[in-house]
Amino acid sequence: MAVVEVKNLSFTYSKKTPYQTHALTDVSFSIEEGEFFGIVGATGSGKSTLISHLNVLTKIQSGEINVLGLSVKEKKNLKSIRFSVGMVFQYPEYQLFEDTVEKDVAFGPKNMKLDKEEIDRRVKEALNLVGLDYDLYAKRSPFELSGGEKRRVAIAGVIAMEPKILVLDEVAAGLDPEGREDILKLIKKLQKEKCPTVVLISHNMDDIASLADRILVLSKGRVEFLGTPKEVFKNYDRMNELKLGVPLATRIQKKLEEKGMSFSDVCVTADQLAHELKRISAKEAENV
Protein backbone atom coordinates (compact mmCIF):
# COMPACT_ATOMS: atom_id res chain seq x y z
CA MET A 1 0.00 0.00 0.00
CA ALA A 2 1.29 3.42 -0.87
CA VAL A 3 1.52 5.66 2.19
CA VAL A 4 2.57 8.71 0.21
CA GLU A 5 1.39 9.51 -3.29
CA VAL A 6 2.71 12.54 -5.13
CA LYS A 7 1.21 13.37 -8.50
CA ASN A 8 2.38 16.07 -10.91
CA LEU A 9 3.61 18.30 -8.12
CA SER A 10 4.93 21.70 -9.23
CA PHE A 11 6.02 24.59 -7.08
CA THR A 12 7.28 28.11 -7.85
CA TYR A 13 8.85 30.47 -5.32
CA SER A 14 8.04 34.21 -5.43
CA LYS A 15 5.63 33.90 -8.30
CA LYS A 16 5.42 36.88 -10.64
CA THR A 17 8.42 38.71 -9.16
CA PRO A 18 11.96 39.04 -10.49
CA TYR A 19 12.96 36.45 -7.86
CA GLN A 20 10.70 33.78 -9.37
CA THR A 21 12.25 30.30 -9.32
CA HIS A 22 10.74 26.97 -10.27
CA ALA A 23 11.60 24.71 -7.36
CA LEU A 24 9.64 21.67 -8.51
CA THR A 25 8.28 20.74 -11.93
CA ASP A 26 5.88 17.87 -12.49
CA VAL A 27 7.18 15.54 -9.79
CA SER A 28 5.38 12.22 -9.38
CA PHE A 29 6.23 9.20 -7.22
CA SER A 30 4.82 7.09 -4.43
CA ILE A 31 6.26 5.61 -1.26
CA GLU A 32 5.16 2.15 -0.13
CA GLU A 33 4.51 1.18 3.45
CA GLY A 34 7.63 -0.17 5.13
CA GLU A 35 9.91 1.29 2.49
CA PHE A 36 13.21 3.05 3.08
CA PHE A 37 12.99 5.82 0.50
CA GLY A 38 16.06 7.87 -0.39
CA ILE A 39 16.01 11.31 -2.01
CA VAL A 40 19.18 12.75 -3.54
CA GLY A 41 19.87 15.87 -5.55
CA ALA A 42 22.36 18.71 -5.77
CA THR A 43 21.86 21.85 -3.68
CA GLY A 44 18.84 23.74 -4.95
CA SER A 45 17.34 20.74 -6.72
CA GLY A 46 14.13 21.04 -4.70
CA LYS A 47 14.56 18.28 -2.11
CA SER A 48 13.69 20.43 0.87
CA THR A 49 10.74 22.01 -0.90
CA LEU A 50 9.52 18.54 -1.78
CA ILE A 51 9.62 17.14 1.74
CA SER A 52 8.10 20.26 3.25
CA HIS A 53 5.05 19.43 1.15
CA LEU A 54 4.74 16.04 2.83
CA ASN A 55 3.44 17.51 6.04
CA VAL A 56 1.88 20.64 4.61
CA LEU A 57 4.52 23.11 5.77
CA THR A 58 4.43 24.37 2.20
CA LYS A 59 1.05 24.96 0.68
CA ILE A 60 0.55 22.95 -2.46
CA GLN A 61 0.32 25.04 -5.65
CA SER A 62 -0.41 22.49 -8.32
CA GLY A 63 -0.61 18.71 -8.44
CA GLU A 64 -1.77 16.33 -5.79
CA ILE A 65 -0.39 14.69 -2.65
CA ASN A 66 -2.03 12.03 -0.54
CA VAL A 67 -0.50 11.03 2.77
CA LEU A 68 -2.00 7.86 4.28
CA GLY A 69 -4.95 8.40 1.99
CA LEU A 70 -5.53 11.96 3.17
CA SER A 71 -5.28 14.83 0.70
CA VAL A 72 -3.01 17.69 1.79
CA LYS A 73 -5.40 20.12 0.14
CA GLU A 74 -8.09 19.58 2.78
CA LYS A 75 -7.63 21.83 5.78
CA LYS A 76 -9.23 19.36 8.17
CA ASN A 77 -6.50 16.80 7.42
CA LEU A 78 -3.71 19.17 8.44
CA LYS A 79 -3.35 18.07 12.07
CA SER A 80 -3.52 14.35 11.43
CA ILE A 81 -1.01 14.60 8.55
CA ARG A 82 1.40 16.66 10.66
CA PHE A 83 1.20 14.11 13.46
CA SER A 84 1.66 11.10 11.21
CA VAL A 85 4.65 12.51 9.30
CA GLY A 86 7.60 13.05 11.63
CA MET A 87 10.05 15.63 10.28
CA VAL A 88 13.68 15.80 11.30
CA PHE A 89 15.14 18.84 9.58
CA GLN A 90 18.77 19.68 8.86
CA TYR A 91 20.59 20.51 12.08
CA PRO A 92 17.56 19.65 14.21
CA GLU A 93 19.51 20.54 17.36
CA TYR A 94 18.86 24.22 16.61
CA GLN A 95 15.17 23.82 17.40
CA LEU A 96 15.70 22.78 21.01
CA PHE A 97 14.33 25.41 23.38
CA GLU A 98 13.10 23.97 26.68
CA ASP A 99 15.12 24.06 29.87
CA THR A 100 15.24 20.28 30.26
CA VAL A 101 15.66 17.46 27.79
CA GLU A 102 12.52 15.83 29.09
CA LYS A 103 10.35 18.89 28.43
CA ASP A 104 11.76 19.37 24.99
CA VAL A 105 11.02 15.81 23.94
CA ALA A 106 7.53 16.19 25.41
CA PHE A 107 6.77 19.25 23.28
CA GLY A 108 5.39 17.25 20.35
CA PRO A 109 3.30 14.78 22.37
CA LYS A 110 1.94 17.71 24.43
CA ASN A 111 0.77 19.41 21.26
CA MET A 112 -1.00 16.17 20.41
CA LYS A 113 -3.00 16.66 23.62
CA LEU A 114 -2.10 13.27 25.06
CA ASP A 115 -2.53 12.63 28.78
CA LYS A 116 0.35 12.98 31.17
CA GLU A 117 1.11 9.29 31.66
CA GLU A 118 1.18 8.64 27.93
CA ILE A 119 3.51 11.61 27.42
CA ASP A 120 5.87 10.35 30.13
CA ARG A 121 5.86 6.86 28.66
CA ARG A 122 6.64 8.18 25.19
CA VAL A 123 9.40 10.51 26.37
CA LYS A 124 11.08 7.67 28.25
CA GLU A 125 10.75 5.30 25.34
CA ALA A 126 11.96 7.84 22.76
CA LEU A 127 15.01 8.82 24.81
CA ASN A 128 15.98 5.20 25.37
CA LEU A 129 15.44 4.44 21.68
CA VAL A 130 17.88 7.14 20.58
CA GLY A 131 20.38 5.78 23.08
CA LEU A 132 20.22 8.41 25.80
CA ASP A 133 19.70 7.06 29.27
CA TYR A 134 16.48 8.60 30.60
CA ASP A 135 17.64 8.90 34.21
CA LEU A 136 20.90 10.55 33.22
CA TYR A 137 19.58 13.00 30.65
CA ALA A 138 15.96 13.82 31.47
CA LYS A 139 16.66 16.73 33.82
CA ARG A 140 19.64 18.21 32.02
CA SER A 141 19.47 21.31 29.87
CA PRO A 142 19.63 20.48 26.17
CA PHE A 143 22.03 23.40 25.67
CA GLU A 144 24.80 21.81 27.70
CA LEU A 145 24.89 18.57 25.70
CA SER A 146 27.37 17.74 22.93
CA GLY A 147 26.39 18.18 19.28
CA GLY A 148 25.67 14.49 18.74
CA GLU A 149 23.62 14.26 21.94
CA LYS A 150 21.61 17.35 21.01
CA ARG A 151 20.78 15.81 17.70
CA ARG A 152 19.60 12.64 19.41
CA VAL A 153 17.37 14.69 21.71
CA ALA A 154 15.88 16.45 18.69
CA ILE A 155 15.25 13.13 16.97
CA ALA A 156 13.70 11.76 20.17
CA GLY A 157 11.36 14.78 20.14
CA VAL A 158 10.04 13.64 16.77
CA ILE A 159 10.01 9.92 17.63
CA ALA A 160 7.95 10.63 20.75
CA MET A 161 5.10 11.68 18.47
CA GLU A 162 5.14 8.12 17.10
CA PRO A 163 4.81 9.13 13.46
CA LYS A 164 3.85 6.61 10.79
CA ILE A 165 6.35 8.09 8.35
CA LEU A 166 9.71 9.46 9.42
CA VAL A 167 11.31 12.07 7.15
CA LEU A 168 14.97 12.92 7.74
CA ASP A 169 16.78 15.76 5.98
CA GLU A 170 20.59 15.34 5.96
CA VAL A 171 20.45 13.85 9.40
CA ALA A 172 24.16 13.00 9.58
CA ALA A 173 25.44 16.39 8.35
CA GLY A 174 28.15 18.00 10.42
CA LEU A 175 28.85 14.99 12.63
CA ASP A 176 32.22 13.26 12.97
CA PRO A 177 32.60 9.85 11.26
CA GLU A 178 31.70 7.95 14.40
CA GLY A 179 28.71 10.13 15.16
CA ARG A 180 27.59 9.71 11.58
CA GLU A 181 27.83 5.94 11.81
CA ASP A 182 25.91 5.97 15.09
CA ILE A 183 23.10 8.14 13.74
CA LEU A 184 22.69 5.94 10.66
CA LYS A 185 22.58 2.83 12.83
CA LEU A 186 19.98 4.58 14.94
CA ILE A 187 17.86 5.30 11.88
CA LYS A 188 17.95 1.64 10.90
CA LYS A 189 16.96 0.66 14.42
CA LEU A 190 14.12 3.17 14.45
CA GLN A 191 12.81 1.78 11.20
CA LYS A 192 12.82 -1.74 12.60
CA GLU A 193 11.31 -0.97 15.98
CA LYS A 194 9.20 2.12 15.69
CA CYS A 195 8.49 3.59 12.32
CA PRO A 196 8.75 1.30 9.30
CA THR A 197 8.46 3.93 6.57
CA VAL A 198 11.48 6.24 6.35
CA VAL A 199 12.32 8.98 3.87
CA LEU A 200 15.96 10.03 3.95
CA ILE A 201 17.59 12.94 2.17
CA SER A 202 21.34 12.63 1.91
CA HIS A 203 24.31 13.88 -0.04
CA ASN A 204 26.26 10.78 0.85
CA MET A 205 25.74 8.20 -1.88
CA ASP A 206 27.32 5.43 0.21
CA ASP A 207 24.78 5.94 3.00
CA ILE A 208 21.89 6.09 0.59
CA ALA A 209 23.06 3.03 -1.36
CA SER A 210 23.35 0.87 1.73
CA LEU A 211 20.16 2.05 3.42
CA ALA A 212 17.54 2.82 0.80
CA ASP A 213 15.22 0.39 -0.95
CA ARG A 214 14.48 2.93 -3.66
CA ILE A 215 16.05 6.25 -4.58
CA LEU A 216 14.53 9.36 -6.13
CA VAL A 217 17.05 11.57 -7.93
CA LEU A 218 16.03 15.20 -8.37
CA SER A 219 17.69 17.62 -10.74
CA LYS A 220 16.54 21.22 -11.09
CA GLY A 221 13.17 20.31 -9.62
CA ARG A 222 12.51 17.39 -11.99
CA VAL A 223 12.65 13.65 -11.40
CA GLU A 224 15.85 12.37 -13.03
CA PHE A 225 15.79 8.76 -11.84
CA LEU A 226 13.57 6.67 -9.62
CA GLY A 227 14.44 3.10 -8.75
CA THR A 228 16.52 0.72 -6.66
CA PRO A 229 20.09 1.79 -5.86
CA LYS A 230 21.40 -0.55 -8.56
CA GLU A 231 19.04 0.88 -11.16
CA VAL A 232 20.01 4.43 -10.24
CA PHE A 233 23.77 4.05 -9.88
CA LYS A 234 24.26 2.15 -13.11
CA ASN A 235 23.81 5.59 -14.70
CA TYR A 236 27.39 6.30 -13.73
CA ASP A 237 28.08 9.19 -16.09
CA ARG A 238 24.79 10.99 -15.57
CA MET A 239 25.11 10.82 -11.78
CA ASN A 240 28.54 12.42 -12.07
CA GLU A 241 27.16 15.08 -14.40
CA LEU A 242 24.56 15.93 -11.76
CA LYS A 243 27.44 16.48 -9.31
CA LEU A 244 26.10 13.71 -7.10
CA GLY A 245 28.51 10.91 -7.94
CA VAL A 246 28.09 7.25 -7.15
CA PRO A 247 28.98 5.13 -4.12
CA LEU A 248 32.64 4.28 -3.56
CA ALA A 249 32.01 0.61 -4.38
CA THR A 250 30.58 1.56 -7.77
CA ARG A 251 33.53 3.85 -8.42
CA ILE A 252 36.02 1.06 -7.65
CA GLN A 253 34.05 -1.30 -9.86
CA LYS A 254 34.22 1.21 -12.71
CA LYS A 255 37.99 1.55 -12.32
CA LEU A 256 38.39 -2.22 -12.33
CA GLU A 257 36.23 -2.47 -15.43
CA GLU A 258 38.48 0.06 -17.14
CA LYS A 259 41.39 -2.25 -16.30
CA GLY A 260 39.62 -5.08 -18.10
CA MET A 261 37.66 -6.87 -15.40
CA SER A 262 34.05 -7.71 -16.19
CA PHE A 263 31.26 -7.83 -13.64
CA SER A 264 27.84 -9.36 -14.01
CA ASP A 265 26.02 -6.69 -12.01
CA VAL A 266 26.38 -3.14 -10.66
CA CYS A 267 27.72 -3.03 -7.12
CA VAL A 268 26.60 -0.22 -4.85
CA THR A 269 27.87 -1.37 -1.46
CA ALA A 270 31.15 -2.77 -0.21
CA ASP A 271 29.47 -6.08 0.55
CA GLN A 272 28.18 -6.46 -2.99
CA LEU A 273 31.57 -5.58 -4.46
CA ALA A 274 33.36 -8.04 -2.17
CA HIS A 275 30.87 -10.70 -3.14
CA GLU A 276 31.37 -10.06 -6.86
CA LEU A 277 35.16 -10.05 -6.51
CA LYS A 278 35.05 -13.34 -4.61
CA ARG A 279 32.91 -14.88 -7.34
CA ILE A 280 35.27 -13.65 -10.03
CA SER A 281 38.39 -14.93 -8.29
CA ALA A 282 36.70 -18.31 -7.68
CA LYS A 283 35.89 -18.47 -11.39
CA GLU A 284 39.47 -17.63 -12.30
CA ALA A 285 40.77 -20.33 -9.95
CA GLU A 286 38.49 -22.78 -11.69
CA ASN A 287 39.80 -21.78 -15.11
CA VAL A 288 43.45 -22.09 -14.13
Binding site: L57, R82, M87, Y94, Q95, F107, V158
Partner: peptide, 27 residues
Protein backbone atom coordinates in the same frame (compact mmCIF):
# COMPACT_ATOMS: atom_id res chain seq x y z
CA UNK B 1 13.10 27.09 9.41
CA UNK B 2 12.49 27.08 13.15
CA UNK B 3 8.81 27.87 12.69
CA UNK B 4 8.57 24.96 10.27
CA UNK B 5 10.37 22.61 12.63
CA UNK B 6 8.09 23.51 15.53
CA UNK B 7 5.00 23.39 13.33
CA UNK B 8 6.05 19.87 12.34
CA UNK B 9 6.02 19.05 16.04
CA UNK B 10 2.45 20.25 16.23
CA UNK B 11 2.99 23.81 17.46
CA UNK B 12 0.16 26.20 16.62
CA UNK B 13 1.07 29.86 16.25
CA UNK B 14 -2.19 31.46 15.33
CA UNK B 15 -4.70 30.20 17.83
CA UNK B 16 -5.66 31.29 21.33
CA UNK B 17 -5.60 34.65 23.06
CA UNK B 18 -2.82 37.21 23.19
CA UNK B 19 -0.92 35.61 26.08
CA UNK B 20 -1.23 32.15 24.60
CA UNK B 21 -0.04 33.47 21.25
CA UNK B 22 2.95 35.18 22.83
CA UNK B 23 3.78 32.00 24.73
CA UNK B 24 3.54 29.95 21.58
CA UNK B 25 6.31 32.10 20.05
CA UNK B 26 8.81 30.97 22.70
CA UNK B 27 9.75 27.75 20.86
Amino acid sequence: KTINAQKARGAAFDTGGLIKKAKSMLP
